[in-house]
């Protein structure tokens, strides 16, 4: 006997992600899923965002890594509520890990939840967490070819942050090719070119996040 199913294989994860999203919306907060390859500057961007927005908004962070609590300790130094998830080998966070982690955060007091996904440009693209926005951090030394090599990840990103622009004079990075590929993969994606090291370009990024939070509050 043949059974017609036609169901998304990741149905269970997608449903849990919807529940997470519902929780975030009831609390009128914005959740970001920050992805990147290892070393692109996810934690640096998160630290810079906290520094710029913490006076106006209440921020919480979920850190995802295969192992260690290094990132959570870094975030913890600035006195922001943070939960570390160790995936013990898994290459991505999933919606269930997030729904468990938010129980350790004062979620009803937050305006912004930043989730730092496992450093990886492949797997996190398939697993929705319940986020409002997918943020992909790329960096100049990685090269301009990354959107061509990891198209799914870029196609699902609402904003692409190009970090370490201060290193552009020292490496062969073709900015036009990079921008062209990002636009082609997601015509509506925002692109922010900045340096977490020098602070250049950060204010545009921070204003965008602030405006997304205000939009959600008044929704």
């Amino acid at each position: 006997m043949e059974i017609k199913v036609l169901k998304n294989i990741l149905n269970a994860n997608d449903q849990r992600a919807q529940e997470n999203r519902g929780l975030f919306e009831r609390n009128r907060m914005v959740a970001l899923n920050v992805t990147a390859s290892p070393g692109a500057g996810k934690t640096s961007l998160i630290m810079a965002t906290i520094k710029a927005l913490r006076d106006e908004f209440r921020i919480g962070v979920i850190e995802g890594d295969v192992s260690s609590a290094i990132d959570a300790e870094t975030i913890g130094t600035v006195g922001i509520p943070v939960v570390q998830i160790n995936t013990n080998g898994a290459c991505h966070l999933d919606a269930t890990m997030i729904s468990n982690a938010v129980q350790s955060l004062p979620i009803d007091e937050l305006d912004l939840l930043i989730v730092e996904n496992v450093g990886n440009l492949i797997c996190p693209a398939s697993f929705a967490l319940g986020e409002h926005k997918n943020i992909l951090v790329a960096s100049v030394p990685e090269g301009h070819d990354k959107p061509y090599k990891y198209p799914l990840m870029f196609s699902k990103s609402d904003a692409v942050v190009l970090n370490k622009i201060d290193l552009a004079p020292y490496v062969d990075f073709d900015r036009d090719q990079f921008i062209e590929a990002v636009n082609g993969l997601h015509a509506d994606a925002r692109i922010f070119e900045l340096s977490c090291k020098t602070g250049e370009g950060l204010s545009e990024w921070n204003s965008w996040i602030a405006s997304e939070i205000r939009k959600e509050r008044t929704a």
């Binding site: 043949e2 036609l6 294989i9 959107p147 198209p151 993969l185 015509a187």
Partner: peptide, 25 residues
Amino acid sequence: WSCPKCHSLNIDIVAGNELYLESLE
């Protein structure tokens, strides 16, 4: 990632993201 006809980058991906269980025997 550009239109072969007019070379625009204003494109929407309409297929290729599928991950479905279609049927069982």
